[in-house]
Each structure stands twice: as C-alpha cells, then as structure tokens.
C-alpha cells in the first residue's frame, strides 16, 4: 500500500505512469479507505488475519491466492479526466488476456448496491467488475490526487480457505493445478503488454527509484503499519 501511494505521488509530481503487479506474503484483509475496522464485521475465519487500510475506496478485500495490480496514471493522460473509464480501460485487456489463456470472463454489466453493503468487496457488485458465470473474480478501486489516479484491483485465482464463499477463477474453471509461478508470471507479462498497448504508454521494466523506495519505507513505517491508520483514529 505504501508503494502504491508512492507511485501515485510519482504520477502526480513526476508525470510517471506505472503498472505494478504483486502478491501478498500472508493472507491479508485490506480495508477500503472509509471502512470501519470493527471486529463485529469480521467472520471467525478471517478476523485474526493481518489488516491494512488502503488509500482507495470500496469494500474490504481478502488478499490470498490472487494477483494484485496497481496502475498509477498522471493527470496529463487523457483518461485521467475520465476516471470511471479507467476501470474499463484496464479491465478490457485483462478480459482479452484471460480469454487467450482459456479463462473466459466478462463485465458484470449491472451494478447493485444495498443500504448495508457487505464488508467484503467480493460480496459487492459494480457493473465494471469481471465475473465468471456470475461470480466476481476481479474488482478495482481508485484514489485520485491532484489530477493523478492510482487504481488497484485483485484477480481472485484460487478460493481462500478464509473466504470459501468467494470461489477463485481457477476453481470455477476446474484448473486449480495451473496456479503455479510460471503461469502467474506469464499472466502478468501478458496483462502488462495488453494494458500498455490499450492505454498507449510505453512499457519499461523498472525498480523503484531511491527516492520512491525511501518514501515507501517512510509511509510504511509512519502510516500503513500503524494502528492509528488501520483503525482510522485521527
């Protein structure tokens, strides 16, 4: 999360566009920015998992057997003036790549909201979610700052034992044996190329600059790892 905020700052101040793919070293709940962090919202199966608060909106995500992406877009890009369209601009190439890998998913096409939204994001419904046979397998959220946007999202590949109600794409398609490092690497390369082409930004593999690394470490220490931030006691 600290790196994602750093990349948003780089987009806002350095005009840098970045696509990042990552996984989590332990099952983790990420809370939406405005969500309450209260134990009564937590099911027994995941109430003791690590938690972090995101910078973006939406519901909580249980990050486990998934691929997570973040995409930082500078305000100078035409899509920055049309933030809701960025969801589609990123999700469509993901649909195309998954189809090429024999995993046909589609946009949900309709949104639904209730007075009391489910705690977990994967229980909520947005028209731009990606679904397989009605089951949500990818959702995204955004943070906008000074014209720049960071959008991140989760591709649910395998069902987590901590949230069995939300099946992974590979479970739904009977392909769980594909969840291996080579497959994940191929997916991320293909996703990156397809998104780069769709959004017309050149792709160049890079590591964080020294300044970005220092900023991320500072944000991690002073913000994202603190109970004050996670519980939003400010």
């Amino acid at each position: 999360m600290a790196i994602d905020e750093t990349l948003l700052e780089s987009a806002a101040t350095e005009n840098r566009c970045t696509l990042r793919w990552y996984q989590w070293d332990q099952p983790t709940i990420s809370l939406g920015y405005f969500q309450k962090n209260v134990s009564e919202d937590a099911d027994e199966s995941w109430k003791y998992l690590a938690r972090v608060r995101r910078l973006s909106g939406g519901g909580a995500i249980l990050h486990h057997h998934e691929l997570t992406y973040s995409f930082a877009l500078p305000g100078s890009h035409p899509l920055a003036k049309l933030p809701p369209e960025l969801y589609v601009a990123i999700h469509q190439p993901i649909i195309d790549v998954l189809a090429a890998h024999g995993l046909p998913v589609q946009f949900r096409g309709v949104s639904f909201r209730s007075e009391s939204e489910p705690f977990l994001c994967f229980g909520r419904g947005d028209e731009r979610d990606l679904i397989y046979q009605g089951q949500k397998i990818l959702g995204s959220a955004q943070r906008r700052r000074r014209g720049a946007i960071v959008q991140h999202g989760s591709l649910l590949l395998l069902t987590s034992e901590h949230a069995p109600d939300f099946p992974g794409l590979l479970n739904l398609t009977g392909q769980t044996d594909r969840f291996q490092e080579t497959f994940l690497k191929n997916l991320t390369v293909d996703f990156s190329n397809a998104i780069s082409q769709a959004l017309e930004f050149p792709l160049e593999s890079q590591i964080l600059t020294d300044e970005e690394l220092a900023q991320s470490e500072s944000l991690e220490k002073e913000k994202y790892s603190t109970d004050e931030w996670t519980s939003r006691k400010k």
């Binding site: 939406g32 920015y33 405005f34 939406g58 943070r143 906008r144």
Partner: peptide
C-alpha cells in the same frame, strides 16, 4: 476534506 464516490476516494 475527502469524498468517496463508488470505490474512488478523492481529495
């Protein structure tokens, strides 16, 4: 201040 539209937080 901050506002959230559906899934997007803005300053």
């Amino acid at each position: 201040g901050e506002v959230e539209s559906v899934k997007a937080v803005s300053d």
